[in-house]
Design a protein around this nucleic acid. Structure first.
Length: 110
DNA sequence: AGTGTGACACTGG
DNA sequence: TCCAGTGCCACAC
């Protein structure tokens, strides 16, 4: 069925879906929450597969620096930034403003 | 079966 | 404080 993915990938999507509106998280935070703190890159791969999954707000996932590294992977050039701004998240120079304040850590919040 | 890449993270200088 | 290099795990070729 549509949405059928590997167990690990589904695990990542589950966490991303838990990200509150107007909040952002990092790949490492998700990876760490899944017990794979060193596999933050794999989370990025999972996000790459999440293309088409509206339930997975990949635009809320940024790197530890709050930089929209994956913005280039979205359909629109600034689609990721537009989505974040639409949620009230200020983004400037491909970086989330007050990222530290909007940062949502699943390991603490979830 | 091995090598290379990647939407990252951490440590060292 | 900032820049550079290394490590890590999974997937693609």
């Amino acid at each position: 069925m549509a949405g059928e993915t590997d167990p690990f990938f589904d695990r990542v999507y589950a966490v991303v879906r838990q990200v509150p509106y107007g909040r952002v998280t990092s790949y490492g935070a998700i990876a760490k929450f899944l017990g794979m703190a060193r596999s933050a890159r794999v989370v990025g791969w999972a996000m790459n597969q999440s293309h088409g999954m509206e339930d997975v707000p990949a635009h809320r996932v940024v790197n530890r620096n709050g930089l929209l590294t994956g913005k280039h992977h979205f359909q629109g050039t600034n689609l990721m930034q537009q989505l974040l701004e639409n949620e009230g998240v200020a983004v400037r120079d491909n970086q989330v403003t007050d990222f530290k304040r909007l940062f949502w850590d699943p390991s603490e919040e979830l």
